[in-house]
Amino acid sequence: MLSTQSAEIVRATLPVVGAHLDQITERFYATMFAERPELLDGLFNRGNQANGEQRRALAGSIAGFAHALIRHPDERPDTLLSRIAHKHASLAVTDDQYVIVHKYLFGAIADVLGEAATPEVVAAWDEVYWLMAGALIALEARLYAERGTADGRTWREWTVVDRRQETPDVVSFVLRPSDGGPLPEVLPGQYVSVRMRMADGVHQIRQYSVSGGDEHTRRITVKRVRATEDAPEGEVSTLLYEATRVGDRLTVSAPFGDVVLKDGDRPLVLVSAGIGCTPVVGMLHHLADTRTTRRVLVLHADRSRAAHALWRETSELVATLPNGQQIVWYEEGDGGLAGQMDLSSLEIPADAEAYLCGPVPFMRRVRDQLLAAGVAARDVHYEVFGPDLWLPAD
């Protein structure tokens, strides 16, 4: 994939570029938004800009792609690319935006590296960028075609037909297409994006797992993260929670997401913490609807029973599975095991497939425990809300 000459230069300069990637991405975003502020309207998440997560995620993806090209020159890192492509498709990213990113990213590289950014070094990393961008453009085009969302048709108006209070900070919205048209297919574990106009007129987009629905509706479940002026990452969930009522219309994308429950007969371990339960509940609905006989172990950690969104529904779904079992851990110990999730005393089938969703530190701990129990690394799948700051080793 990468030319021999460029591969040698990238290998030699990767330590230097990697050491400066945080500076490069910080300069990149600052310059791009100063000159192209419209990109913050309906594309980039300003909450993740404020807390630095988007910058770190971009640096990690560039470094990860470059490392993959060097280690396995004849292979394409599809796992990394698929995760990014699905998120981009859910934002309706277009081909021309890669040209904009290239301009400001390579301007930042030249600024930060100075004399070290020789024409040969820039040319080699330019090749890396366009290999990655080209692969993403192709993957995203395929996703748009599969979802019938080509030509800018990613977005659709949906009407809120029900609002359900799940916990003091979590609410579910049941949605129906406002145009009365057919529902798009959603695979168990996928998410949709919701595009909201904020008080200052800027549009912001957030992703929410499809936690349920029927032949006429889809449901999303939203946890309010209280936003502040210094930490705006909860501004969309706060607006949804506080202002959205039955009869309101929401602008929602087609479903996307690469962490999808695989059919088969292997045992399943579904692991979540906090609002990470939402894709798991979507998977459980699919398993119940298909009358699976697979062994299904559902594990959840939360602060308390009162904070555990959709717990009753989860319990009812697990009860319909002939080989289903649910275990919960609550920090307060009310109605579940006390403390943090601990798999050491559980019998985890070594041939199980595991699906994880929750805070990254939580998923790291659980993944380590699953590997120790004999589950293969390739069979541990994870979903992250927001920028992917964790790319576990294969």
Rank of each mutant, 00 (worst) to 15 (best):
L136W: 02
K87P: 13
R197Q: 12
T293R: 12
A307D: 14
V225A: 07
L113V: 12
Q97C: 13
L175S: 05
I137Y: 01
G276V: 09
V298W: 03
A319R: 14
L270E: 01
D394P: 15
R245W: 11
A373F: 12
V375I: 09
R365V: 12
V186A: 15
G134E: 12
P359I: 12
I9M: 00
R218C: 07
A145I: 09
Q340S: 15
E166H: 04
W125D: 00
P392M: 11
R266V: 13
R219T: 15
A85N: 03
R83D: 08
R142I: 14
A377P: 15
A123V: 09
V192R: 00
H300E: 01
S82H: 13
Q49E: 06
M198P: 07
F65K: 00
R294F: 04
Q369R: 10
V280K: 11
K262P: 02
G247F: 05
Q190L: 08
A63I: 06
H88F: 09
R46F: 09
T293P: 07
N48E: 10
L299C: 10
G336P: 06
H300G: 00
A123D: 02
S344H: 09
D126S: 08
G247C: 08
R312S: 12
D263V: 09
R71D: 13
W390K: 00
A124K: 00
F106H: 00
A243Q: 13
P77L: 05
H86P: 04
L287H: 10
G107N: 06
L105A: 04
I100Q: 05
V384A: 03
R156S: 02
M32F: 08
